[in-house]
């Protein structure tokens, strides 16, 4: 699938997810479900905006990277794990909300969504091993930049919280570590790739 087709797929995704969120709002769906589709739609808006305004060299880089064997293998492992993650998140939150259960069982169900994410992390590790040496250097720089950005955000956030300037629930703060790492990794990868173009 080329860049233009992926862009159109992104537009279609935005329309579908926001249409579902609006329909859900009208039909009286739960806030969690509406929030899920709104969140997916917002994420797609950010992604499509970036794809739309990305410089030519980045598009070329993506085209080549997407067609590499390492990238294909990564996507083949990553997508089923992400679909499984989505299903388990829904199932886990629904079960925890609707049933009383003993703490050990509650812990297993609550932590279950982390399992498919560990498959994604394993897929990424395999990707790192399979890419060529320059791409591996770019990826390692990107991961390093992401670690620094997230550490800085959480350090600053921790001081603000201790200073009682902000009051973010600990669960929310912990959940956001991984998405923030992914977002910061994208920034890091853009920056690192530009150095070698």
């Amino acid at each position: 699938m080329n860049f233009r087709k992926r862009l159109w797929l992104g537009y279609a995704g935005i329309v579908v997810t926001f249409a579902l969120a609006l329909y859900g709002n009208h039909a009286g769906w739960s806030d969690t479900r509406i929030g899920f589709f709104t969140g997916m739609g917002t994420g797609l808006v950010v992604l499509v905006a970036f794809m739309h305004f990305a410089p030519r060299w980045w598009r070329d880089h993506c085209e080549e990277a997407y067609s590499s064997r390492a990238s294909r293998d990564y996507r083949r492992r990553m997508w089923p794990a992400m679909i499984l993650y989505t299903a388990i998140v829904f199932a886990s939150t629904w079960l925890l909300k609707h049933y009383q259960m003993a703490i050990p069982l509650r812990a297993v169900i609550a932590v279950a969504p982390a399992l498919p994410i560990s498959f994604v992390m394993y897929a990424f590790l395999r990707y790192l091993r399979n890419v060529d040496e320059m791409q591996r250097r770019i990826e390692m720089e990107a991961v390093g930049i992401a670690a620094l950005i997230v550490s800085q955000i959480y350090l600053a956030g921790g001081f603000l919280q201790l200073g009682k300037v902000i009051d973010i629930p600990s669960g929310v703060a912990m959940i956001w570590v991984f998405p923030l790492m992914c977002f910061s990794y994208a920034i890091g990868k853009f920056r690192a790739t530009r150095r070698y173009r």
Binding site: D132, M134, Q135, R195, Y196
Partner: peptide, 22 residues
């Protein structure tokens, strides 16, 4: 060489120095 075209480009433009095996 079993590397990406971008790696060849970066090598030719002197932006990347290869590992010893490469």
């Amino acid at each position: 060489l079993d590397v990406s075209r971008q790696t060849i480009n970066a090598l030719e433009t002197g932006k990347y120095d290869p590992s010893l095996p490469l």
